[in-house]
Design a protein around this nucleic acid. Structure first.
Length: 328
DNA sequence: AAAGCTACCCGCCAAT
DNA sequence: TGATTGGCGGGTAGCT
C-alpha cells in the first residue's frame, strides 16, 4: 500500500533514496538525481528530496571515488529507492546493502532498478517469481543466475507495482519519468521530460522500445544477422535463412534461438521495425515507401507492427523523432 | 470484421 | 554412448 498521506494544499516532499556502492554505474546514478531534482510544483518548490546513500562514506565508481554523505539508515524514510547498475555484475554485494533494500521493501517503499541494478534486486530476493528486465547484454546472465525470475529483454521497463526494473541507461530515464507520472500525473511527467529534452511521444506512454544493438554472436550467426540487415526488403522466410546458413529449417530455428535468443521470424520482424524507425527518423519517405524498403507487405502491416513494438503510430513517431538536417 | 490460409515454432524421435 | 541433426505433425500467430 503506497503512502498517500497528504493534507489539503500540502504535499509532503517525497524522499527518493539512490543507492551507491562499489562498482556503481555513474550514468545510472546520475539520471535519477537529475530527473527527480527537477520536479517542482506550480510555485517552484521541489517535490522530491533526492538523497544518495551508501554503506560506507566513500565508494568506488570506475575511475572516480564518490564521497557519499548519507548512510543506509536513510532508507528508512524513503518513499522510493533507486538501485543503479553495477559493474561487473559478478561482484559480491555487501549484505547490509541487500538487507536494507529488503527492509525498505517490506516497509512498503517502492524499489526501482536501472540497467544491471536488477542484479542487486535479484540478489536481495525481491524479484523471485516476478517479471524483470535489465540491459539486453546482461539478460541471459541474469536469467542464468536467478532462474526464479522471468527475464524479458525486449521491454524498456517492467512495472510490478512496488518493484520495478528497467533496461539500459536510456531506459532508466524512461523509468524515472514513469515514476513521476505515477506520483504526480501526466502533466508533471511531461514537464520534467521536456526539461531533460525527452521527446513527448516517448514520455507519453506505455511505449516499450527495443534496444537497437545486435547481440554479440559467433561466426555463422553474426554474418547471418548482417545478411538479414542487408536483405530486409526481400521476402525472408525460414527456408531462405536456412538455405543461406546451410542448415535445415529445423536446425536453424534451434540454433538461432540458442545463439541469438529469439526466433528467426520475430528477429526479422523486429529488424524491420527498427529499419522503419530509422527511415522515419532520417527521411521524408511516405509510409508506403518505407513499408516497401523495410520489407513489410503493406503499409497496413507496417502500421500494426510498428504500433505494437514502438507504442506509437509511425507519423507521430516521425513528428517527435525526426532528426533535422544540420542547417547550413 | 471474420474466416481461411500460410508459415512458424517446437516437442518428439529416429538417424547420424 | 551422448550430442546434434533434421523430418514430421499439431497447435497457432499473423496476413490476406
Amino acid at each position: 500500500v503506497a503512502q498517500k498521506t497528504s493534507f489539503a494544499g500540502f504535499a509532503p516532499r517525497r524522499i527518493v533514496a539512490i543507492l551507491a556502492f562499489d562498482g556503481v554505474v555513474l550514468g545510472d546514478l546520475s539520471v535519477p538525481c537529475e530527473v527527480f531534482s527537477r520536479v517542482r510544483d506550480a510555485k517552484g518548490s521541489l517535490l522530491y528530496d533526492v538523497q544518495v546513500c551508501s554503506a560506507k562514506p566513500v565508494v568506488r565508481a570506475g575511475p572516480v571515488a564518490l564521497q557519499v554523505a548519507r548512510r543506509l539508515a536513510s532508507l528508512s524514510r524513503a518513499h522510493t529507492v533507486i538501485v543503479p547498475g553495477v559493474d561487473p555484475v559478478e561482484q559480491q554485494l555487501p549484505q547490509p546493502l541487500l538487507r536494507a533494500i529488503r527492509r525498505a521493501a517490506a516497509r512498503g517503499a517502492r524499489i526501482a532498478s536501472i540497467c544491471t541494478g536488477a542484479f542487486v534486486l535479484a540478489a536481495s530476493g525481491l524479484l523471485d517469481g516476478r517479471r524483470a528486465t535489465t540491459h539486453w547484454r546482461a539478460a541471459a546472465e541474469l536469467a542464468r543466475r536467478h532462474p526464479a525470475l522471468h527475464v524479458d529483454p525486449n521491454v524498456l521497463y517492467v512495472d510490478n507495482g512496488n518493484i520495478l526494473t528497467s533496461a539500459g541507461a536510456a531506459a532508466g530515464l524512461d523509468l524515472c519519468i514513469h515514476l513521476v507520472r505515477r506520483d504526480l500525473g501526466a502533466q508533471a511527467a511531461a514537464h520534467v521530460a521536456r526539461d531533460v529534452v525527452m521527446p513527448p511521444e516517448r514520455a507519453g506512454g506505455q511505449a516499450q522500445f527495443i534496444e537497437h544493438d545486435t547481440p554479440a554472436t559467433d561466426g555463422v550467426f553474426a554474418s547471418l544477422l548482417e545478411w538479414i540487415e542487408q536483405h530486409l526488403h526481400e521476402r525472408l522466410t525460414l527456408r531462405t535463412l536456412a538455405r543461406r546458413a546451410a542448415m535445415s529449417t529445423r536446425t536453424l530455428s534451434r540454433q538461432f534461438r540458442q545463439h541469438v535468443g529469439a526466433t528467426p521470424a520475430s528477429w526479422v520482424a523486429h529488424a524491420r521495425v527498427r529499419r522503419a524507425q530509422r527511415l522515419f527518423e532520417t527521411t521524408d519517405l511516405s509510409v508506403e515507401r518505407i513499408a516497401a524498403e523495410a520489407g513489410f507487405r503493406s503499409a497496413t502491416v507496417l502500421r500494426a507492427r510498428f504500433r505494437e513494438v514502438v507504442g506509437t503510430a509511425p507519423i507521430a513517431y516521425r513528428r517527435s523523432f525526426k532528426v533535422p538536417l544540420s542547417a547550413g
